[in-house]
Simulated assay, not measured.
Amino acid sequence: MRAVVAHGAGELRLEERPLPSPAPGQVAVRIRYGGICGSDLHYWRHGAVGDFRLREPLVLGHEVVGEVREVGAGVRGLEPGARVAVHPATPCRECRQCLSGRHNICPHTAYLGSAARFPHVQGGFADVVVVPAEQVLVLPAGLDLRRAALAEPAAVAWHAVGRAGDVTGKRVLVTGAGPIGCLVVAALHAAGAAEIVVTDVHAAPLAVAAAVGATSTVQVGTAQAAELEGMAADVAVESSGSPAGFDTCLNGVDRGGLVVGLGLLPPGGTAVAANAIITRELRVVGSFRFDLELAEVLTALRSGMLRAEPVITSVLPVGRVSEAFETAADPAASCKVLLDFQASDG
């Protein structure tokens, strides 16, 4: 089978790997679509994501959907041909976090396509992927695989909005209109936010944000940015992963407001306007990955409550993987780029 493998900074290969078979309790999924994430781009460009460096070749990808190909012994409720989404996380289910129901912050989690462990956890950008049966969710009837490919990043956004609490009727600021930021906008819209203001340095992603529910957009670095002064949002969600974006959130919420940190900041010490947290008595919470939200998101995608389709800006066959990664790496020209593992390379 084919697999998209990172061998180091700048080394991305489409190579042959042995076709895997499921062991008892496992499921083999024939992948149709895989969404290229920021972490995939970091492994390709830098050979690392934060402190997690490649120490062996790594099959990338954790945003994958497809059809069940084969099930291992003892698996019930999943039949070959069923259209499914794959939850990328395998928590330990034994630590304090897992036992308290917070599997998404389990310190021992194995995550598809991650170099956080050694040996690395090989990812989902392959023709066939084998995972534990409990990580496989059957799609709701009527939800096509292309839309379902957004479920994993949308669950990240859904979890972040959940961390903000009830946003019904509230004014919300979102910094960063990348794929996750735009999906945060879609989730906020679904949750009943009255006003959603989105910032980004590029015009194209702001157009996507508007298409999924932003009530207004602000391009950073232009005269339009003055509109943020005195905004006094109830909630701000930082999804750009930049210190400047974090400061915009800290200064953009009203006194006593809430900031949700979602975008991963550069590793090491990061200077932010911490005094604003103290003097304006702000609440700041983190948001990391997701847990059970994937099932909720699949239902919301099926019903149309989650307006996410405009986030997909390109779908390219896996045979053109280098072009797909180059496209995904240009935020001025793309939002979410999907790899199609069952399309011809033409």
Rank of each mutant, 00 (worst) to 15 (best):
C92M: 00
P310M: 10
A191P: 02
V197Q: 02
G34P: 04
H120M: 02
S287K: 07
A300N: 07
T168C: 08
L292A: 09
P205Y: 05
L12A: 00
G169K: 09
G181D: 00
E195W: 11
G261T: 13
G269T: 08
V138Y: 03
C249Q: 00
F290Q: 02
G304E: 12
T248H: 00
L60D: 08
R102H: 14
R53I: 07
P179Q: 11
A48D: 05
F125A: 12
F118D: 09
G230I: 11
V64K: 05
A186S: 12
L339A: 14
A6Y: 00
S21W: 13
Q224Y: 03
R53M: 10
A164V: 13
A126Y: 13
A23V: 10
S242D: 00
A233K: 10
R17S: 10
E70Q: 15
E296V: 10
P317G: 05
P132E: 08
V272Y: 14
G74P: 01
E15T: 15
A85D: 00
L137W: 04
L41G: 06
T222R: 07
G230S: 07
D291M: 02
K170M: 08
D127R: 11
T175H: 02
E195N: 07
G245C: 05
C106I: 05
L145F: 11
G176P: 01
I277W: 06
Q135L: 05
M305I: 08
E296T: 06
S216E: 15
C37Q: 06
R302V: 14
T248I: 01
C249E: 00
T109P: 01
C95V: 02
M231L: 15
A273E: 09
V337D: 07
D51E: 13
P310D: 07
V29H: 12
V197G: 10
G263D: 05
S114I: 03
S314Q: 13
E11I: 12
G221E: 00
A332Q: 03
R17V: 15
V235L: 06
T279F: 15
A273K: 13
A126N: 12
V128P: 01
E79K: 15
L298E: 01
L173S: 03
A73M: 07
Q122D: 01
V138C: 12
S239L: 05
P140W: 09
A73Y: 09
G221T: 04
C106P: 01
G261V: 15
A23F: 11
G304C: 04
T222A: 03
V285Y: 04
A85G: 06
S239A: 15
E281C: 14
